[in-house]
Amino acid sequence: MKVLILSDSHGLTTELLEIQERHKDEVDMMFHCGDSELSSNSKELISFKGVKGNCDFGSDLPNEIIEDLGGITLYMTHGHLYNVKMTLMSLKYRAMETSAKIACYGHSHIANAEMIDDVLLINPGSIRLPVMRKQKTYAILELENNVANVTFYEVNGQEFPELSKSFTLN
């Protein structure tokens, strides 16, 4: 199973449509980790399962989504409700409460994938305002058996191998 994960697009529309079009035949699902600043029924978000971010004022999107990915549970939230700019521990504990092996989040705009206590935490970065690097990024998660491959891409579709990693899920 393959899923596209992006976050913090902050009003971008053309880029969202381009990314969807580029990967629509390659991925099974698309997730937006919040701060789209678009209506939940906008054409740019129609292909995404999304959550509400701190800049999504008046949005009817949920604060969290729990999704079964072929037997592996994924938890998604924006991150502001879990203080992810300071620590990932609250997010990790929430993922564990939901029996999730994978937690996707945004908010910090820092692209990263890391394993903490058997929970894979993925922040796809921001396709508009990246932090700690100039590359505007999103990610594709590929699950095969108990292996999770996280590949990062720049907004133009070019792979960003310095961030890409593989993990074994227990």
Rank of each mutant, 00 (worst) to 15 (best):
N170K: 15
V3G: 05
G106L: 01
Y93I: 11
L45F: 08
V155L: 01
F31C: 02
S166G: 02
T87A: 13
M132G: 03
G11C: 11
L74W: 08
S126D: 07
C104P: 06
L45N: 00
T151L: 00
S36G: 06
E18L: 13
Y153D: 00
F57H: 14
V119A: 08
S36I: 02
N149P: 06
I19A: 02
D28F: 01
Q135A: 15
P124I: 03
E64K: 04
E26Y: 13
G106Q: 08
F152V: 00
V51W: 05
E37N: 01
S42M: 03
N54G: 12
M1S: 09
A111T: 04
H32Q: 04
D60A: 11
L12M: 10
M89C: 00
K136W: 09
M1K: 14
N41D: 15
D60E: 14
K52I: 08
D8W: 08
T98L: 13
V51C: 03
V155C: 06
M30A: 05
G34T: 08
G125W: 08
C33N: 02
S36P: 01
G125R: 01
V150P: 08
Y138K: 06
F48I: 03
R133F: 14
K134C: 10
V51I: 07
G79E: 09
N149C: 07
R133I: 13
V155G: 04
K52A: 06
V3Y: 04
P130T: 04
H107A: 09
M115C: 03
L61G: 07
